[in-house]
Design a protein around this nucleic acid. Sequence first.
DNA 1: TTCCGACAGTGGGGTCGCAAT
DNA 2: ATTGCGACCCCACTATCGGAA
Length: 512
Amino acid sequence: MLLSRLARVSQEIAATSARSRKIALLAELFRDAEADDVPVVIPYLAGRLPQGRIGVGWKTLSRPVAPAERATLTVRAVDTLIGRLAEVSGPGSQAGRTLLLEELLGAATEDEQRFLLGLLSGEIRQGALDAVAAEGLARATGAPPAEVRRAVMLAGSLQAVAGALLADGPDALERFRLTVGHPVLPMLAHSAPSVAGAVEKLGAAAVEEKLDGIRVQVHRDGDTVRVHTRTLDDITDRLPEVTAAARALRGERFILDGEVVSFDEEGRPRSFQETAGRVGSRTDVAAAARKVPVSPVFFDALSVDGRDLLDLPFAERHAELARLVPEPMRVRRTVVSGPDDLDAAEDFLAETLRRGHEGVVVKGLDAPYSAGRRGASWLKVKPVHTLDLVVLAAEWGSGRRTGRLSNLHLGARTADGGFAMLGKTFKGMTDAVLAWQTERLRELAVDESGYVVTVRPELVVEIAYDGLQRSTRYPAGVTLRFARLVRYREDKRPDEADTVETLLAAHPEVRP
DNA sequence: TTCCGACAGTGGGGTCGCAAT
DNA sequence: ATTGCGACCCCACTATCGGAA
């Protein structure tokens, strides 16, 4: 199949807003793909490379290459070239990559280049990624969409399912079962503003502490233990403590879901930055483990002794977990009977925060494990802080925000009467707010020459955030975690905005 | 008919590893 | 030795479509 066909279809998909039309376009293309093209065509149309990320990013792609006149590239030729690109490493690799990229892009027409650049940068922006591609695949092969989705969750990727389906038809789906050693996409949680709201929605529920670390899925089959992240990367080699802990458990074969965190000498959780840094360390794991030892803390069991527990109610899965995993290696929790039992839930949240954790996750006791989905039965509740800050500048948006000032630079007042930038945010803006702030900020602009528009510090915004973290980038030595806009405070003057001093006082555990 | 679940998009900060300087 | 880039951890929020209620 020619690359030009993919580029054309991708453009058509981007041009329509109807999901049904996107699915139809994808199905038609998948049907036409030859067997050998399938392992490439499907991931490409889902916006990803079969090789995964290959060390080519935005900067590497920023040098323009003269496009070809005619479309001659085949999908398989592209895959071969990208395969070679992925292999390049060591000194001189940047030059080697650039050369191969020029070869690839030089053979592509303008339309094909646009598609390839999106693909390589990971920003296809056609309004259809994995989920829609899975739907298209179901349509193309006559398989039930729900079963295709389930197979994808169990396989961990669309690719494997696509290959099997197109080779052997809908019966191939039965091959995708939960298997120890094969990671499945983890279940995710929604947010809820309060424990009361969450319990109201779910009724009888477990309230569990939410640890601020790295999500892990741990597979043990006899002596073999594998540890995977939320995106199913294998991080076994970086976490010897987790392997040891899994081997020490009584069960021989299981899949557990949990979080890896680091506790200090007093038993309080270390900051996310410290834990994440440890988990990210690969070159000298032993040294990193001495400085920041980690512990796995589990909250769910997906498989025990060869039994698939995914469809069991959470209460039963947890009973299996409790049989297998002793108390300190399980997440602390309490069970509430429903809205009448709210005090117990609130007390548990307060106690959890005192212990230095992020918040709680409220989980319906009846719900199955919805692999790969943001199940409505898991609701996280975290305290939200707010501040009044001053807009120092704004950046021009991209995509659907093109032509709108989007990303705000936020400042707090300093002792000398100036402002210290604490971070940026683009979150929480409706289209109406984007339009309004674009106009208003341009009135206040002092420099509109670049992609950052500097403004007179006169607009006050109410900003919500999850906490403070240390920063080497910003002048106060701290930055806001997950900052988002709540509203503009036109009733406030900039000299009424919050100060760096009050911010630091509100978070004594963080020192710049 | 209205409501709501699922998706995609639009980006944020930090940290590590590696290549280039 | 330092700097810059890319990958990958954590993530919130809004708009939209289309099926559920």
